[in-house]
Amino acid sequence: MDTRAPKPPRVGLFVTCLVDLFRPTVGFASVKLLEEAGCEVDVPMAQTCCGQPAYNSGDRADTIAIAKNTIEAFEEYDYVVAPSGSCAGMLKKHYPGLFAGEGMWEARAKALAEKTYELVSFLVDVMGVSAVKAAHDGTVTYHDSCSGLRELGIAEQPRRLLASVSGLKLVEMHDADVCCGFGGTFCVKYPDISNKIVEEKTANIAASGADTLLAGDLGCLMNMAGKLQRQGSAVKVRHVAEVLAGMDDGPAIGRGKD
């Protein structure tokens, strides 16, 4: 009789380029949450970016090259998990279409898509996590990032886990499910329109009365943090994984040590 525990699932963490470069804390928070949920986590060094900047700029050739690199780097794992609805959505919803009709690569892209998840929904939907062992003293509000919400159906999962954080009070802002105006390269190609949209968002954040803003995508978070700070707001901005992992004692996004 085999008395050993079942082999833990091997998770390849897709760190995402923004987390890698700007907010490693989110990566370490992800590792912690996944390990606590019983996963064996590995971070393949061959990863770079999911390819969205090229994909959304119409550059299909580069997108395909980047996608192939990602597929090769991650296909050995049981699951691919990213702390981003946008990047997970790229792997899950868009990679297969890049290789439509291309036999082997299409099959490999589909296989990768099937085992790819966004972090929080993976914890709840796949690993059956219903509570975390974290504490956060304060009032937070949660922004639903577009890709996670509309491509992957992530809305209830982060709220459920946040509800289990001791001391945390979640207040909903108006239009939490409306775009923050980031949109990848959109925010630099159309800065004035992007600004108008993020101003609506920060007004809703301010009106919620929360002292901390959370979301699941670093692009959106940097956009909203940048606007809040330009406006002189005291609201702190963090990735939801930081709070869920209890790794929210360092400076908030864009806050440094001041």
Binding site: R23, P191, N195, M222, N223, A225, K227, G250, G256
Partner: peptide, 8 residues
């Protein structure tokens, strides 16, 4: 229109 968060 906004500040740019510095990397960790």
């Amino acid at each position: 229109h906004r500040d740019f968060p510095a990397p960790e």
